[in-house]
């Protein structure tokens, strides 16, 4: 895992170093004498060999210092990341929650009434939703809920730290919903498929033969074994989630990590891009590791045998 992170950091660093253009020119503007640019470059460490720069940067990162932006006002990268991260995390988490809250009951209903009319409609519906790209879905939602109905706002952002939870949720809902759509469809399909397989197991029949009501069987007997694929899926959806968040932040003009990276990339602000991507990658790897751990909890068979 550490090795992977190292490689990623190296990759990000190397990639950004390939950025066209001269950062010194970007910062100071045109028309200065060559020595001024050179001084700035030395100050920024751009004239040092690659490996030294990488080691310095990595060393700083491990102590929480991700360097400073090269674009005015040359703010601390860590500060910007810390302020942008909660926004993205909130959208992502909210989106996941909405997706789960809708997908689990939907999948259970579908699986229980397999091949019924509603099940087939839900199947068709989720397939269709999966075929709509995130930005298109977002635009359509904006068309309906912002332009036509004016129920939700489209830009600006209210922070929870400002004390206005309701306002924050009001701004967060539509972006979170956009993110949730694709996840919802995916979760419903996989969970349904898994539940159908589980429901065919003998122990479900045995539970029925004990006289247990179907709802109870669904929750206590079927859901737990089926939750594996859901957990795997949660892990897999992370990458997609982060991507969706970027698009959603763009659509709704939200000050999150996605906007941070996109804007920094557009401005050639390489320390910002490096720092932000590193943080994203670390979080991603950590969460995946956490998901692997949770497998042990869900299936007692994978726990250490204690016979």
């Amino acid at each position: 895992m550490v090795l992977v992170l190292l490689i990623v950091s190296l990759g990000v660093f190397a990639l950004v170093a390939l950025l066209p253009g001269d950062p010194a020119v970007a910062i100071l503007g045109e028309g200065h004498p060559a020595s001024t640019y050179d001084d700035l470059r030395t100050e920024l460490g751009l004239n040092d060999p690659m490996l030294t720069r990488y080691a310095d940067w990595l060393g700083g990162a491990l102590t929480g210092d991700l360097g400073r932006s090269v674009v005015p006002p040359r703010s601390d990268v860590s500060d910007r990341v810390v302020s942008a991260l909660p926004v993205s995390v909130e959208i992502a988490v909210l989106g996941l929650l909405i997706a789960l809250l809708v997908a689990v009951p939907l999948a259970m209903w579908s699986a229980y009434h397999e091949d019924g009319v509603l099940d087939r409609m839900i199947s068709a519906g989720t397939f269709a939703v999966l075929s709509v790209p995130g930005f298109l879905a977002g635009l359509l939602l904006i068309m309906v809920f912002v332009n036509a109905l004016d129920w939700f706002p489209r830009s600006e952002w209210v922070r929870i730290s400002d004390g206005d939870l309701l306002g924050n949720l009001h701004h967060a809902f539509l972006p979170a919903l956009t993110v949730a759509l694709v996840e919802l469809a995916m979760f419903t399909r996989v969970l349904r498929s898994d539940l159908i397989v589980t429901l065919r197991e003998d122990y479900i029949l045995a539970a029925r033969a004990k006289g247990m009501p179907p709802l109870r069987i669904l929750f206590t007997d079927a859901l737990r074994p089926s939750s594996f694929s859901l957990v795997t899926l949660l892990g897999l959806s992370l990458g997609r989630l982060i991507g969706s968040t970027v698009i959603v932040e763009y659509l709704f003009s939200l000050p999150g990590m996605g906007s941070l990276v996109v804007n920094a990339a557009n401005q050639g602000d390489f320390p910002m891009v490096q720092g932000a991507v590193l943080v994203i990658a670390v979080i991603y790897v950590l969460i995946n590791a956490g998901i692997d751990l949770s497998y042990g909890y869900l299936d007692p068979r994978t726990r250490k045998a204690h016979v």
Partner: peptide, 9 residues
């Protein structure tokens, strides 16, 4: 490593 970076990023 390739997978460690979210695709869109």
């Amino acid at each position: 490593s390739l997978l460690a970076v979210p695709p869109l990023i």
